[in-house]
Design a protein around this nucleic acid. Structure first.
Lengths: 192, 192
DNA sequence: GGGTCAACCAAGCAAGCGCTAGTGTAAACG
DNA sequence: CGTTTACACTAGCGCTTGCTTGGTTGACCC
């Protein structure tokens, strides 16, 4: 047991772990399964991670950090029109959720399995992401595009979007863009 | 090992199990923890349930059946106006979700842990519940109250509602009714 | 060309897991 | 009365779990 930095090897292992965590769930994924998927023996795992919980934390950190970057990029790329920004945010959210899917499903489902310290650290990242949403919602409210309570609306919207991982079929006829269109149309007052 | 009927004792044990499953998650809840919470020894548990999975199935069945009954009652109690019915449905959903909370959280989080047979059986119950939603959404679409695709809208709405178990604080200032009001207002075109 | 170091392995420990077998007991039943 | 039934207990089997220990390998470094 030695490192907790982010070597390239560790990044790769984290990616593989995310996949297994999605397939089996955190608790049902044994260190032996993880090791086999990674092509090493179970003992060697603890050279890269202090314990099993740290693997989970690494997966979730990766995913959340990615989501933040993508959302910020999407917002910076569009003008200041509230509708456009709302749209961009929804699209960015769905894109991360459905392409970099594994890490996000883990973040959504296995959050409670984190150790208190890890949860504390990661909740700051998550809050930063949610703040982006609240800001965009605020703008849409100010522009009269939607109505209601800023806190509730942003929670409802994020709920609707996060729930997609339960039913969305990437091989079906609908693209993530379609979903974003539909959602924005549903909550805005002006016709699309 | 003998019975799989629904004795009153079994109902009570199921309720207690739901609470533990929420607190710890299904996998982390051991039969010894369950037994202790129930005031018996771990071996005695298997007099009431064939195995641990059956306890989970019982919890989820209870919750889903309850939700169905409550939603049907709520719908039958209101007139045929689409807005009223949409409202009633949202309120019923939130009420079951936030009062009979335990069973529903388990159903949402631990669905994947069910054995294939149990999942098959319970998915029929769940489908019946979702059909209620799609029907109400259909009526609202026909009345011009909301717009969009019936499938997507109902999924978005259920996502927004189910997500509430993540952030809603029953001791906070907002009542379940407040949430239902806000959600309906968010997605309908006409002013509240 | 000896030293360093990240990466890996073999072996296994202690604890905990779901579940079973066999028994006890008190109320309900004919 | 004797039998049945529902519920609980004790004791533990067989297996898996996360993690540790001590040692080996091969690439790189001055």
């Amino acid at each position: 047991m030695n490192v907790m930095n982010d070597s390239p090897r560790r990044k790769e292992l984290t990616r593989l772990a995310a996949q297994l965590f999605v397939q089996e769930g955190f608790d049902r994924t044994t260190v032996r399964m993880l090791a086999q998927e990674m092509g090493i023996k179970s003992g060697s795992l603890f050279h890269h991670f202090r314990d099993k919980q740290e693997i989970l934390a690494a997966v979730i950190e990766e995913g959340t950090q990615n989501a933040l970057v993508i959302a910020r990029k999407a917002l910076s790329r569009c003008d200041n029109e509230a509708g456009t920004r709302l749209h961009a945010m929804a699209r960015a959210h769905l894109e991360t959720l459905l392409t970099d899917r594994n890490a996000h499903v883990v973040a959504l489902y296995e959050w409670r399995r984190l150790s208190p310290e890890a949860r504390d650290h990661l909740s700051h990242l998550r809050d930063a992401y949610e703040a982006l949403w609240e800001q965009v919602i605020d703008e849409a409210l100010a522009a009269g595009l939607i109505r209601g309570d800023r806190f509730l609306v942003s929670r409802f919207v994020m709920g609707a979007l996060n729930w997609t991982v339960r039913w969305y079929d990437p091989d079906g006829p609908r693209t993530p863009d379609d979903l974003a269109d539909e959602l924005v149309a549903m909550i805005t007052r002006a016709p699309a």
